[in-house]
Computed example of a mutant assay.
Amino acid sequence: MYLEYLGPKQANTAEHLKTIDMAIAGRVDGIITQGIGEEQFNHLVTKAKEKSIPIVTIDTDAPESERAVYVGTDNYYSGFIAGKAIINDTTGRQHVAIVTGRHDAPHQKLRVQGFMDAIATEKRISVLTVEESNITEIGASEAAHKILKQYPSVTAFYGTSALDGIGIAKVVSNLKAEDNIYIIGFDILSETLEYIENGLIEATVVQFPYQMGYESVERLIQLNEGKELQPLQHTDTKIVHKEDLPLDPATMSGGQQP
């Protein structure tokens, strides 16, 4: 088996789509790619299927396309457990602000919706606003600063992409408001873990990217062997608090959870 890694040097949807088209033209035996929520992506998936090239989406799904299998986080569930975490970790009235990567990104929308559904019956918790960060730290900081100015009653933040929690934490720290603000983030960047250790970020939602990569290759091999697979192959997701640190590298790289 020969596995080639291709893609744009920076996030660029047009180049991403062009690379997929080139792979199809090259008559590869299968493609693993992040799903893209655009009609052109759906057309390319259909084109690949017509040439008997299975496509496995990883990390970000494109459920409206004809992709064979999605391997990655159940984004609705990840938002749901984030909502359950804030219920379990807090007492009293909570006014939550959500900072999300992009309003139009399907996986980000699912992380918001899961959270909303988790707290729906918890009358003491309400969401004040949902702001966009454009999946950048500075965007998250700007959103958090805007929220703290417009909504002085805010008591909690939920960041739905990897840099959101960091950007929120920096603003909260600069304003010396950490004693009154609960923050739950996403992913385990080193800076996120530092903020958890010093108590500024209370918790984070952890994904398993190694597991995603490993299982996506396995599923592509199985598809080429003609096996029938369930279209949704969800990988592990869990909440991490300070007491869970330090993390076991073997576990975080995709080993089985206890």
Rank of each mutant, 00 (worst) to 15 (best):
L223P: 05
T57D: 07
I138Q: 15
A23I: 00
I184E: 01
A11K: 12
H103R: 15
A162Q: 09
I98E: 04
D244W: 04
P249H: 10
N134W: 04
I168T: 06
D104W: 14
P209T: 15
K238P: 10
A156R: 02
E142S: 15
I53H: 04
L110Y: 04
A177V: 03
I166V: 14
N180T: 08
K146R: 12
K49N: 11
G159R: 02
I24A: 08
A143E: 01
L247S: 03
V56H: 00
D117E: 10
I98W: 08
R219K: 15
R124T: 12
Q34C: 13
V172I: 07
E243M: 09
E218L: 15
D104C: 15
K242M: 08
L3V: 12
P106W: 08
D117N: 12
K242W: 10
H145T: 14
L128W: 05
L128D: 06
H95L: 04
R111L: 00
E218G: 11
Y195F: 13
Q256N: 12
E66Y: 09
G83Q: 01
A82W: 04
D61H: 07
L44Y: 03
N198Q: 13
D21F: 10
K176Q: 12
I183F: 04
I147C: 05
T100N: 09
E50K: 05
I81P: 00
V96N: 02
T90R: 04
Y182F: 02
A177I: 01
V206L: 08
M252H: 10
A97M: 07
N12T: 09
A156V: 01
K84G: 03
T235A: 06
L223C: 06
L220V: 06
V172P: 01
F41H: 14
E50F: 00
K227V: 05
T160H: 03
E131A: 14
Q94N: 07
G7N: 08
A118N: 04
I239T: 00
L229H: 10
R27P: 11
A23L: 03
G83N: 02
